[in-house]
Amino acid sequence: MINCNGSLYPEDQEILTHSNRGLKYGDALFETVRCVNGTLFFWEDHYFRLMASMRILRMEIPMEFTLEFLEEEIKRTIAENNGADKAVRVRLTIFRNEGGLYAPETNDVSYIIETKLLDSPFYVINEGDYEVELFKDYYVNKDMLSSLKTTNKILNVVASVYAQENGYANCLLVNTDKQVVEAINGNLFVVKGDTVKTPPLADGCLNGIVRKKLMEVIEASEEFQLVEESISPFELQKADELFITNSVVGIQPISKYRKKVFSNTIAKKLVGKLNARARMGS
């Protein structure tokens, strides 16, 4: 079942029209949240990021869009899909209502909630082959819009097609200064010795929730040093480890970039700490 503005519809029922602004202009935002046994991982962070993003895009935030209201609607949708006691991937999409061309006729919004069952209740490390390559056909802009989770993801789509055509598991995206920014579907971390490095938001990377939580974990650790600085492509092959983070997978180690094969020792250490944070809900 799909939840559209509080009403539940079968997945195969058409509920959007050709005038939908998310379809026509990419005038939409989304949050992807992991839910396990009724607990939404890092829900407050997702909620406040969504509210901030709506303000930046000048969307009208409905009075009922409280933290509690959206959480309840998400859980109701999960329950309708028999996932209340399971691990679930949730996608909450917010789009400006129909009308207008580039300039909208209204800033009022609608929402859709979708759910899908996951295999594991906690973040686990995938130790299989995961080779990546740089995608340099097009670039990420260094601005605030790039840090938002909007549906304007054509760069990510084209990079995904490139990865499929060339047998890569993922691609790393670069910005207009030719610095490495992120992966197609998550933030990038580079490990060298006890230093864990990730690009700053000013470079154009997504303001990821798990990125934020993992940075907090690393900063609180006496074992590692966190560095938030631009990453040059030349650094990748000198690293001990590379890994990607997002809200559904948690931490995905990169096994190979060009001729360099990487370990995943630090990723394994950090995933346990990330799971602990998720269970605490903070």
Rank of each mutant, 00 (worst) to 15 (best):
S53K: 02
V261R: 14
P233L: 12
N187G: 02
Q164M: 09
F30K: 07
V210N: 05
G193I: 03
A169H: 12
V109I: 12
F243S: 02
F42T: 00
V161K: 07
F95E: 14
N185F: 15
G6A: 06
I78H: 09
E131Q: 13
Y9S: 03
N175S: 02
Y162K: 02
L226R: 00
E165L: 07
Y47H: 02
N5D: 15
E31G: 08
V90P: 08
L50K: 03
L201M: 03
Y257R: 04
Y257H: 10
A28V: 05
A163L: 09
G250W: 01
E223V: 12
L188R: 14
T17R: 01
Q225F: 08
F262K: 07
R279N: 06
V174C: 15
L92S: 10
L70D: 05
L67W: 12
S247W: 00
I74H: 11
D137V: 12
M54N: 07
L145T: 04
E127D: 07
V158N: 06
F243P: 01
K256W: 15
F224M: 05
E73H: 14
D27E: 00
T195K: 13
K238P: 02
E72Q: 14
R34F: 10
P10E: 09
L188K: 04
L29R: 03
E80R: 13
Y9G: 12
S255L: 11
D27S: 01
V90W: 09
D203E: 06
V88K: 05
M54C: 02
R34D: 04
K213T: 10
M59T: 02
E216Q: 10
